[in-house]
Nucleic acid binder design. Structure first.
Length: 432
RNA sequence: GGAGAGAUGGCUGAGUGGUCGAAAGCGGCCGCCUGCUAAGCGGUUGUAGGGGUGUUAAGCCCUUACCCCGGGUUCGAAUCCCGGUCUCUCCGCCA
């Protein structure tokens, strides 16, 4: 949510920002109209209430019964009038809130301009894609032959976009999760969190998934709860409606969690393999920090995520989103993409395994997450950031496809071996 | 699922139609004192909106709202009434 004062005082800046991300700048004018009306009603209601408060205090002092009754009637009429104005005010306030909840965040000035994902900028590419002296197979073939990935039975259980990991496949995913958590907690200073996978509506409003993107979420109508599409939601909301001590910032959390997405908007996309499922696991990093440090915290966040790619020794690249490809909430965003040699339409493909973004105070304002810069100082909104570290299915794809051997076996990356009982390979025999 | 209790400021915890944004204590902050020092004294200390002054600053002034949420009664509600939500305790069930 943008600060209404920013819209009021620098409308042109906001219009420019909205235009840069491809949003409708006239939302600024709608917001200003509502804001003007809101303040008008607020001022009027406040002054009438002041009048009534003063009047009510005097009532006890009036001796003459007739005079007192008349005065009472007067106050009652005043009260009715206040009631009407308050009703109008409540309506305008709600309209304004709803509008503000649908206005996207503004991009940082450094974000390159672009209309859509074709104008994203590759910042750096690390590692050389392996050259194969045989035809590399896509992961769904590798997984089926090793009997570690069962897509058909996943569909039987739960429908399309579900799958089952079996034997060494399940163990490999578990090893990846453990590696990531150990790396981020042990070397990068994150505190591990195990959050609920099911959250209240306010949490999703806080992170910006609602009200605009509810169609990508699973919902339990009976208890009015939602399945979290990412650990970002519960973890960012840990400090919702709190005022943190400035001295405890930055806060860095890392959480492993299942994620649930309807993917209705992606019908027909990425249908083969396990690249895009309704349920997947992810290790997610979340940071809360002061506005002064958020930019450098983003760089270190990206680096922390890259560390996983480096540990796995798989080629990857860092891509900066242009203004047109920022999410609704992000002010600046970098994606990490792992190389997968065989699962794309024409062979090799870069797989998005992490989105690292700074949301400035956009989420913090929605979720009311504040901090006190100094003892006794006024509370201010924190900046929030998050990034995957990493998303499991696609990382699994990259491991299987990059480390496959001609005989159909898969070599286990060195960093994962301690988590798999020292094993070096997954073969058909071992999987069974 | 059954029964009961409760929801007040950063925390603990009073309050009961107006003089209550709310006692007291703790914690925080500022200052003072001090050869009894893991102490003492004094002051101060919630959040948000609007208006005014000010350089669209800091600061200051005025005002309104907020004692879980939403309605109602009343000239006036933290306080009374109704509805809801949440939390806790006990019983049952259960990984």
């Amino acid at each position: 949510m943008l600060d209404i004062r920013l819209i009021r005082e620098q409308p042109e800046t906001v219009r420019e920002g909205l235009t840069r991300v491809g949003a409708d700048p006239s939302m600024v004018d709608q917001a200003l109209a509502l804001d003007g009306r809101r303040r008008e009603l607020d001022t009027e209601a406040a002054s009438l209430r002041a009048e009534r408060n003063a009047g009510s205090k005097r009532i006890g002092g009036i001796k003459d019964p007739a005079e007192r009754d008349a005065y009472r009637a007067e106050m009652r009429a005043l009260g009715d009038r206040i009631g009407e104005i308050e009703k109008a005010l409540t309506g305008v306030e709600e309209d304004q809130r709803q509008l503000l909840l649908t206005i996207p965040n503004l991009p940082l000035p450094e974000v390159p301009y672009g209309v859509d994902d074709r104008e994203n900028v590759v910042v750096r590419t690390v590692g050389e894609p392996r050259t194969f002296d045989f035809e590399p197979k896509p992961h769904w073939e590798i997984g089926a032959q090793l009997d570690i990935l069962d897509i058909e039975r996943g569909v039987k259980l739960s429908g399309s976009r579900f799958y089952v990991l079996k034997g060494a496949g399940a163990a490999l995913q578990r090893a990846l999760i453990a590696l990531m958590l150990d790396l981020h907690t042990g070397q990068h200073g994150y505190t591990e969190i195990y959050p609920p996978a099911v959250v209240r509506e306010e949490c999703l409003v806080g992170t910006g998934n609602l009200p605009k993107f509810g169609d990508n979420l699973y919902r339990d109508i009976e208890d009015d709860l939602w399945l979290a599409p990412t650990a970002e939601v519960p973890v960012t909301n840990l400090h919702r409606e709190e005022i943190l001590d400035g001295a405890q910032l930055p806060i860095r959390y890392v959480a492993y969690s299942p994620c649930f997405r309807r993917e209705r908007m992606s019908a027909g996309r990425d249908v083969r393999g396990i690249k895009r499922g309704h349920q997947f696991d992810k290790v997610e990093m979340v940071k809360l920090c002061t506005p002064e440090t958020s930019r450098e915290e983003l760089d270190s966040l990206v680096n922390d995520a890259e560390d996983v790619c480096r540990a796995l020794a798989i080629p990857y690249r860092v891509v900066q989103m242009c203004t047109g490809d920022l999410s609704f909430v992000a002010a600046i965003k970098f994606d990490l993409e792992l190389w997968a040699p065989a699962c794309g339409p024409e062979g090799g493909e870069w797989l998005e395994v992490s989105s690292c973004a700074c949301f400035t105070d956009f989420q913090a304002r929605r979720a009311s997450i504040r901090y006190r810069p100094e003892p006794g100082a006024k509370p201010a909104f924190v900046h929030t950031l998050n990034g995957s570290g990493l998303a499991l299915p696609r990382t699994l794809i990259a491991v299987l496809e990059n480390y496959q051997n001609e005989d159909g076996s898969v070599t286990i990356p060195g960093a994962l071996r301690p988590y798999m009982g020292g094993r070096e390979r997954i073969t058909r025999a071992e999987a069974l």
